[in-house]
Write a protein that binds this DNA or RNA. Structure first.
Lengths: 133, 133
DNA sequence: TTTTACCTTGACGTTAACGTCAAGGTAAAC
DNA sequence: GTTTACCTTGACGTTAACGTCAAGGTAAAA
């Protein structure tokens, strides 16, 4: 009841570079690289980086984005969009379109791969035919 | 009947760099690059490159190989294999295995893409849900 | 107190498949 | 003869996403 509203939380939840490195299985170099690219913005304690929960959440999003094939600059743009706290709907629509474009790309790639598989399969059959002689 | 067996053919079928460039829609830079990589070996008339039908056939194979996702060095290895005119069967088996490995890779990739599509689709649905509010 | 471990910045290296000049040679057409 | 077109080699540039030193700072443990 008497706890001041601005009392510092007792679970600050900050992370070192090696914490995140270990948790997400990326190198420290990668984390510094993401910072240089503006994807993360850890504070410093002296020289040492201190990552907040927000940084951690962002990192998670970066890695998710990479998994589905977005480039780092794509991801940065989207993260930056979400930082503009206004016009939520607009932001969501922008990202929605991004995602849909990416889905189209992926479907195109899938077709290409299927064609390549068909090509190679046919070629294999021809070679097998030759080997039967 | 009296034509000597070693008579030069009257249809030499040689090609200039721009012939091939136009026919296969690749730049001349690309053709020189492939030569530097040992994929093509055109003769020279003075300075100028003269591509034989064999070069043309090789180029065709290179482009086919690229289409199904082989690297240039993969392709070079396979082309070189076919140049060793002995042990045909062995060569064919080697390539057959290569092709099958590539097919496996592609199938793996296809699965990855399908997963990414599923991920993105799910995310889109979530966003759409948020937008309905 | 020295070792050990972890942290920092900075700068250059890597890979693939060419692109892009630069600087010049040749050759046919006008 | 000069313009136009095409050819040559050589060398450096590009892109992405980090990797790999180098050289040094700090701090806790032995």
């Amino acid at each position: 009841m008497d706890v001041p509203a601005d009392a510092a939380p007792f679970i600050p939840q900050v992370f070192t570079i090696s914490d995140l490195s270990a948790e997400f299985d990326v190198t420290t170099r990668t984390l510094r690289f993401y910072e240089a690219k503006g994807l993360l913005e850890p504070k410093r304690r002296g020289q040492t980086r201190l990552y907040s929960r927000r940084d951690r959440a962002r990192l998670k999003l970066v890695l998710q984005g990479k998994r589905v094939g977005f480039s780092l600059s794509d991801i940065k743009e989207m993260l930056d969009l979400y930082d503009l706290k206004d016009g939520q709907t607009t932001q969501l629509n922008v990202s929605l379109n991004r995602f849909r474009e990416r889905i189209s790309d992926l479907q195109r790639q899938k077709i290409d791969i299927e064609e390549a598989i068909a090509d190679l399969t046919r070629t294999c059959e021809i070679i097998q035919g030759m080997l039967k002689e």
